[in-house]
């Protein structure tokens, strides 16, 4: 089986392919083979554990983009029942890069939002790599307003490199689409649980990516700008993206340290893509427990606390 190998995984991939070739041999012909396979399996597992327990920020960014990483649609399919998707912004078109749906999780009716990356080249072409156009964000805003009207909690899955750049997106008001989502999401009178499952790139992520709780998968990132764009703007060298990733404080742990994220959901050894089912299950439990905790809050208190939560963000001094 051909694997997608990230640079830092190369030593691991070498061991794995050695293991694969050993497994192809006939055990009966080589008496020591079974033991060798067993030892190598342990070694591979240990190396994976070592690598993944000390990922650099840039390595985490790569893991967050892994093509086999579970996507919004995988979480929705596994965790939610009776899913009714809403389509279109009622002005221009339906943007497949954004999911908006009515759904049920653990007996609770909710509105689900999410960036929808594809897994294949064709899916990604259709879904623009999960980069929303204005109409996608306006569809998400329809979901927010419906949730507000019906008193349904919002669960939002963040997984995008950013809002779509391009002539059409600009001419249809990408900036307006984002700011309107921000204004609406900050004031809906229902619980909002946001989950960073992969990439959290800039305004396109933020538009549906904050609320009363922010849960981050262990290797997901969330950043004011992608490391590549940051490098391109600040030092005009995109190959320094790794250095930027370290500077931008974009990992799940950084977000907790900055007081922006509430909880980190640990990933299976080797990343969520190694065991999507386990990762999805863990995210599901975290989401349900956040919804349970928030469901007891009065709407007024909830909105006030969300406002205070946003208002308290920032590091400044009052000189002079």
């Amino acid at each position: 089986m051909k694997r997608y190998v990230m640079g830092f995984e190369r030593p691991l991939a070498e061991l794995e392919s050695k293991l694969d070739s050993l497994k192809e041999l006939e055990v009966s012909e080589e008496p020591d083979l079974a033991r060798e396979i067993e030892e190598l399996t342990v070694e591979v597992d240990e190396l994976r554990g070592t690598l993944y327990s000390a990922l650099s920020p840039w390595e985490k960014v790569q893991v967050s983009r892994h093509p086999d990483r579970p996507r919004t649609q995988d979480y929705v399919a596994a965790l939610f029942t009776d899913v009714v998707e809403l389509r279109g912004d009622r002005a221009f078109r339906d943007d497949p890069a954004v999911l908006t749906a009515l759904a049920t999780v653990a007996g609770r009716r909710v509105v689900v939002l999410g960036h929808r990356k594809g897994k294949t080249a064709r899916e990604n072409a259709e879904r623009n790599f999960g980069m929303a156009h204005p109409e996608g964000l306006r569809k998400a805003r329809r979901g927010m307003r419906l949730a507000d009207k019906l008193g349904l909690p919002i669960v939002s899955f963040i997984d995008t490199p950013g809002a779509s750049p391009g002539v059409g997106a600009e001419e249809r008001g990408q900036a307006w689409a984002i700011s309107e989502c921000l204004a609406t999401l900050s004031s809906v009178r229902v619980p909002v649980v946001a989950v960073g499952i992969g990439e959290g790139g800039s305004g396109g992520a933020l538009a549906i990516g904050f609320g009363d709780r922010l849960i981050m998968l262990e290797h997901a990132y969330y950043s004011v700008i992608t490391p590549e764009s940051c490098a391109s703007i600040l030092v005009r060298e995109t190959d320094r993206a790794g250095e930027m990733a370290a500077s931008l404080a974009l990992t799940a742990q950084d977000l907790v340290d900055l007081g922006l994220a509430d909880e980190i959901v640990g990933e299976p050894r080797g990343g969520a893509h190694r065991d999507p089912e386990a990762a999805i299950g863990d995210v599901g439990r975290a989401v349900v427990s956040a919804l349970d905790a928030l469901s007891e809050r009065e709407a007024d208190a909830l909105v006030e606390e969300r406002y205070e939560r946003l208002r308290s963000i920032g590091e400044f001094t009052g000189v002079g």
Binding site: I178, S179, L182, A183, T184, L185, S186, S187, S202, G203, L206, F210, Y222, S223, V224, I225, C230, I233, L234, S247, L248, A249, L250, D254, L255, L258, L260, R306, Y307, L310, R311, I313, G314, E315
Partner: peptide
């Protein structure tokens, strides 16, 4: 745009300012 040197703290100012505008509007 957002001030990259403050990372996520600057991205979140977008939500913070929009929330304040929304209250003024309401």
């Amino acid at each position: 745009g957002a001030r990259m040197q403050e990372g996520m703290l600057s991205l979140m100012q977008m939500a913070k300012t929009s929330a304040a505008v929304a209250r003024h509007d309401a």
